[in-house]
Design a protein around this nucleic acid. Structure first.
Lengths: 137, 137, 137, 137
DNA sequence: GTGGTCTAGACCACG
DNA sequence: GTGGTCTAGACCACC
């Protein structure tokens, strides 16, 4: 369920955070259901529990999960988060648009690229062998 | 010509790389013209020559400049670079589109956001048109 | 009578302690009356008896209740407790005042904030007056 | 300059965060000045660098400092933070007021306590021997 | 030298 | 069993 790319420059804990967010957005991790325990998930991904701990900390700070000592971590209210996530995306798109302008890409061309980007998504980065497979739900 | 933001979390060499790319795209640094020398540029920006060295290394690796031993570095073929840069942008947009899909944003909505992003770019304290000069070429 | 919020980050035993203190302050649990037995209360709240045990331990340590071996736990002298509780609050307020001073808040401003805090307490989704009952005494 | 109370139940990194915030608010750590390095501060306080790292991470997240890899950490814009801090304080006071109401403290009494708290601040918790002294500026 | 990430292993509070 | 904190020591990217 979670693929780690050890070759990726992004830190592992961030990859975990992002992937778990996706799983919630997709409804695979349901609201108020219990998250895998820090230790279990760490074992399944063959990484250190501290790394998972940090990922969970991030998720809690961002409101995606809530944790209770001695009981576990649980999926938070997803509806509220979806809008926040959307705003975040708008900001990223804004940055990209700005970049496009500086290299002389006009509006029409930019929109064309965007449309084509949305339509033809071929799994970026064909699975490169070194990736790890873990956590079969 | 180059503005460094020391408060920016991005490494300095990366800021230099990006800004130099822009200057080429805008035609301010012309094809086959000579780049400023490493030590000169370093002095003008008041940063370590190693940092410029690294920036130039990056630019060469990406094909933006070519160096001739004993003579200096020169701007590469801009036309080729512009297409490369555009492809890079397409890839980024693709990633964003993929992300949008996972949280349930449909095509129409995505395009609307993209258009709005291109049109209404208000950047906090942006100096557009007449940029500040930290280095006179 | 006691509402537990499993989503609250505070430990359950602490929620129980606080709520029982309130019930005494409000006179709902009367002086020298018998407290519910550990196992009864645990069953009614559907939580582990150990948790109630710990809550009672805390209450006894703080002087809110006293236990008689073989007979049970009983509510202590409320008058004494009220003053203790008030002192505790004074200490907290003192800490807050100290903090206020360090960031340059003057007396007038501090008092204004305090007054406004006492008057306008709008709690999100607060059930005031007729609270929900999780346990009928 | 920074006192750690190892007996305090609050985690060390949090004590460090709070103390550093105070030092900024008091102007002892000036805007845009460089913070002590992670390793140095850790050594001076005789704690693990990771703990300082975490404290700095918190401070950066909250906007109190900004960090640049390879250069160091620097004090951020304090003016903006002061207002945020004040709002946070209002919230705390609100919680305290609510608590006061539940135990039957009326408005007049609450205000009296608040005033007295602001006036007579005797350093809470006389230095208890076990505290550590470190980081003489 | 700097900050940032990760691992390994430990201890604590909570249920 | 759970999450949370801390230590010790390592490696990396950056300047």
């Amino acid at each position: 369920m979670i693929l780690l790319d050890l070759k990726d420059s992004r830190p592992i804990y961030e990859q975990v955070v992002e992937r778990l967010q996706e799983l919630m957005m997709l409804g695979i991790l349901e609201e108020d259901s219990q998250m895998p325990s820090v230790r279990n998930l760490a074992m399944e991904l063959s990484i250190n529990p501290n790394t998972i701990q940090r990922a969970y900390g991030e998720l809690e700070r961002r409101g995606y999960i809530y944790s209770v000592k001695g009981r576990g971590s649980f999926v938070g209210s997803i509806r509220k988060l979806r809008t926040a996530k959307k705003e975040e995306m708008e900001k990223k798109l804004g940055g990209l648009a700005k970049e496009a302008k500086t290299i002389g890409i006009m509006r029409d061309e930019f929109m064309a690229i965007a449309g084509q980007a949305y339509d033809g998504i071929r799994e970026s980065g064909q699975i490169s062998g070194e990736e790890q497979w873990a956590m079969n739900e």
